[in-house]
């Protein structure tokens, strides 16, 4: 959803220090870890409150971190986030939105020419090795972002299903009910409710971003058009 600009887009090394050159990654990596720790601590408190109510023993943080309850709560959110970005990466190849900085220009829908993509005879000295290689390596590299995102999505979703059936069955047994097989669980209301409640919020956020960025601006953000840009200009990032 963003494009490199300025000196870095021209392949030049910046003189900025490590921290300021990698601020975006460090910031989001940092708040991810803080949020994960917060989720673990609050989840442990809830888990032990439930245990006290049921007359069961309290568990340690390590024990909770290895529980299916924590695993399903983490992975059900991960899979939906990776799906969101995977779909966004792929949908924006072929679909456009007039006026949105999140979209390509209207006449560029599709995989684009080798010249536009700087491959084949249009590679540059600083192009990645696999982009210069051609053949299978180029084909893989040309789809590598979607391949990796889809792999993480599928693994997260698989982990959600495995942790989910375990957490679901723990509740079933606590209520003196029959546990469920993995095969039955992945077609169950519990699995799809957990999945779809995450998907719908991700899809809403993306659709909102695409539409709101047509008319609204954030000065200085590459996710927005320049403040003075026309509502009709498409693919223009600030």
């Amino acid at each position: 959803m963003t494009s490199a600009k300025g000196a870095d887009a021209k392949g030049k090394r910046s003189d900025r220090g490590f921290l300021s050159s990698n601020g975006l990654t460090l910031f989001f990596g940092g708040i991810f870890l803080l949020a994960l720790v917060g989720q673990a601590l609050t989840g442990l408190a809830l888990y032990n409150n439930d245990a006290a109510t049921s007359g069961l023993e309290q568990v340690s943080l390590l024990r909770y971190l290895t529980s299916s309850e924590f695993a399903v709560d983490v992975t059900e959110n991960w899979q939906s986030e990776y799906l969101q970005f995977l779909l966004y990466i792929l949908a924006t190849v072929w679909l456009v939105q007039r006026g949105s900085p999140e979209s390509k220009e209207l006449d560029k829908a599709g995989l684009e020419s080798d010249e536009d993509q700087m491959v084949g005879k249009h590679t540059r000295p600083d192009s990645p090795a696999w982009a210069k290689a051609g053949g299978l390596r180029l084909s893989v590299y040309a789809w590598s972002l979607a391949l990796v995102m889809s792999t993480i999505f599928l693994l997260s979703w698989l982990a959600q299903s495995i942790a989910g059936v375990s957490a679901f069955n723990a509740e079933q047994l606590a209520e003196l009910q029959e546990p469920m097989s993995w095969g039955s669980y992945v077609t169950s209301a519990d699995f799809w409710n957990r999945t779809l409640q995450n998907w719908q919020s991700e899809f809403l956020a993306v659709a909102s971003m695409v539409v709101l960025s047509i008319y609204l601006r954030q000065r200085g953000s590459p996710e927005s058009k320049p403040v003075g840009a026309s509502h009709n200009s498409t693919g223009l990032e600030g």
């Binding site: 529980s67 982990a159 942790a163």
Partner: peptide
């Protein structure tokens, strides 16, 4: 067993090479 798998699958996603998954179930 399934709980053990859940943890190992999550660890796989995390990219963490965990030993001792078998002792956590």
């Amino acid at each position: 067993m399934t709980r053990r798998l859940a943890w190992c699958a999550t660890a796989l996603v995390l990219g963490v090479n965990l030993s001792g998954c078998s002792s956590l179930g």
